[in-house]
Design a protein around this nucleic acid. Structure first.
Lengths: 212, 212
DNA sequence: CGTAAATAACTGACCAGTCAGTTATCAATG
DNA sequence: CATTGATAACTGACTGGTCAGTTATTTACG
């Protein structure tokens, strides 16, 4: 024993953030159900009991992860998207690039995968995800499409479906990377996919006049 | 006690199929890890021990589910897709309709969701899924696109990306239905999405000459 | 000191996989 | 047409291990 060093420190205000960071990692690696609180605690440098000083249950910890680590990322994309003034032809590639960056650098895909995984057994997780992430993101995209339709830039049709036409391949690419690449599938270049898809989708979505 | 009725019957040849059916239901409802073999057994009308007469482990049972219930569905779609002769403009909507039907009536989406869910903790599951389902399905679609490019019907570009452009929104629609609708999200009309998307994608993918 | 932060040992519930024992079924026999 | 083994299908209680959440105790620190 080195008696000069205390075995631990009281750090009431630093703990929550450290725990949330550790929780994000472990949740992403193992999924909600299979994530062990002991592992999260160890990675955060505390004991399991300490977790319960700051979070009442495992679920509450997950909600904190979404709130603290995913929502800020989403805000950044939303910022770009609400430039409704820009012509769709220019806005779409910007959005796609921003999104591709987010999906390759942030932990959003890992959390998304986890929510898909556990939605049936932990519906509260899915509800939080839907209310705070998906419906907001899709709402923004749908709004962009609708505005472009109003300006005559985008062909008629359900704007929500158009939004899915744009976002779907990205999701598929992400899932490919998260689920299949780890077991040996041929890798996908996500930004390249985003660029080629946006090009294709633009031709398909724009009115003949707007293509000029 | 009604002594005339036996407590159970020996039905060696009927059991495996019944167990696989029950397993599909429970796996789809709860995911692989959370599915209880006791539940599967109960739903199949046998004891847990009986499961082990026909399947060595839980994983082997899952593989049987894929083999017996998913692959036949896939074969049917593959049939349509290998009509490589047909012009892409006609083949694509047919494929989309067939796929939409499959995704709304079969159990494929539920199994897919499960695989996504458990891929990290049970990589073998994901490998089976990739080798036997995804890579085959995507291969067929990529082949169709490539053939159409060779005939000058489809614009240049990575045919694999084009395939993802086509299939992605369908996957997104399916996940929406599986994950978010159960927790209160606004429902999506999957066949309608398929039709509108294929229309959009066709315009985007076809060469100007092929659009005639 | 007092007290709040943190620990570590503990509890209770859960479940995959096992196995000793039970019972349906059927072929052989009287 | 019984009766009787023999056999293999089937059962259900049990084991060993895991893990969320609890609590009695220790320790940092104002």
């Amino acid at each position: 024993m080195t008696p000069g060093q205390p075995r631990w420190r009281r750090r009431k205000d630093a703990r929550p953030a450290e725990i949330v960071t550790a929780a994000l990692e472990v949740f992403a690696e193992r999924g909600f159900a299979a994530a062990r609180l002991d592992d999260i605690a160890a990675r955060a440098g505390v004991s399991k009991g300490a977790l319960y000083l700051y979070f009442e249950t495992k679920q509450e910890l997950f909600e904190a992860v979404v709130r603290d680590t995913v929502l800020p990322d989403l805000d950044a994309v939303e910022q770009v998207a609400t430039n409704l003034e820009l012509p769709f032809r220019q806005l779409a590639p910007m959005l796609a690039a921003r999104l591709a960056l987010l999906l390759t650098t942030s932990s959003l895909p890992a959390v998304a995968k986890m929510v898909i995984a556990e939605s049936r057994n932990f519906p509260d997780l899915a509800r939080v995800w839907h209310d705070q992430v998906v419906s907001r993101a899709l709402g923004v995209l749908t709004g962009v499409v609708k505005a472009a339709q109003a300006r005559g830039e985008v062909r008629p049709g359900d704007p929500r479906f158009h939004a899915l036409s744009i976002a779907g391949p990205m999701l598929m690419g992400v899932l490919w990377r998260e689920v299949l690449e780890p077991v040996g599938a041929e890798p996908i270049d996500l930004p390249a996919l985003a660029m080629q898809h946006v090009e294709t989708a633009l031709v398909g979505l724009l009115t003949p006049e707007a293509r000029a």
